[in-house]
Design a protein around this nucleic acid. Structure first.
Length: 214
DNA sequence: CACCAGGCAAGTA
DNA sequence: TACTTGCATGGT
């Protein structure tokens, strides 16, 4: 199918190649990273993840033993550390309560139900939930973020005021559900936008998407 | 120095 | 319902 969404993917993949997301050594690390990266650059998140890793806390059994007050100082470099410690705790508690503390059970949960459980956690919104569903649970869910919205708007494929669900439906209606494809697509959008579609210093004419639908 | 980053929830009117 | 504000560190 040669929709403009495939065309964008092809242009990005040709320009940047595989992005190898999610950058993590374990599924648990993906879940933690998904919360820590909320409105935060990934370079800051890696520092926080490293703090946990060197203390052997980057696994469910260890981290779920800690309370927010103990987690907070460890994740300081990721910013918003008090609220993120609480949010992380909320996610771990949900898995304790709903899945007997077994991450594997949650990972195998039916997609729509898993999404509901995630969204019911205070501190987990649609992007965090969908990032976990795609990159940890390996469900074919298209992740929308601020970058994605900016790129679509830049190419006249979405209005400024479009909401999360409408943008997600746009992709999912145009593309076959495919975990690896959605994985790469989201990563490529982050790559191109963070490099060429910044708020302050956009480099539109050097962007590999330059000219598409303009 | 100001501005931004792979959001989300709570407060206000 | 529709806006606005708080959360916070680290890089440019």
């Amino acid at each position: 199918m040669g929709t403009i969404y495939h065309q964008i993917y092809d242009a990005l993949f040709q320009a940047f190649g595989p992005q190898n997301w999610w950058p993590a050594e374990s599924v648990f690390e993906i879940v933690v990273g998904a919360v820590l990266t909320q409105n935060t650059s990934w370079s800051n998140v890696t520092k926080a993840l490293e703090n946990l890793r060197v203390r052997d806390l980057l696994n469910f059994s260890a981290l779920s033993q800690l309370g927010p007050d103990e987690i907070a100082p460890l994740i300081r470099p990721s910013g918003y550390y008090n609220i993120k410690a609480r949010r992380l705790s909320n996610v771990l508690n949900m898995i304790v309560e709903e899945y007997d503390g077994q991450l594997d059970l949650f990972l195998r949960e039916e997609c729509d139900l898993a999404r509901e459980k995630l969204l019911a956690v205070k501190g987990v919104g649609p992007e965090t939930a969908d990032s976990i569903l795609l990159y940890a649970c390996e469900q074919p869910v298209f992740v929308i973020d601020a970058y994605t919205h900016r790129v679509l708007h830049r190419h006249n494929l979405a209005p400024e005021e479009a909401d999360y669900h409408s943008l997600q439906e746009q992709f999912q209606a145009a593309l076959e559900p495919d975990v690896q494809y959605f994985n790469e697509y989201h990563a490529l959008l982050v790559k191109v936008a963070s490099q060429y579609c910044k708020k302050r210093n956009p480099l539109c004419e050097q962007c590999p998407l330059w000219g598409i639908n303009l």
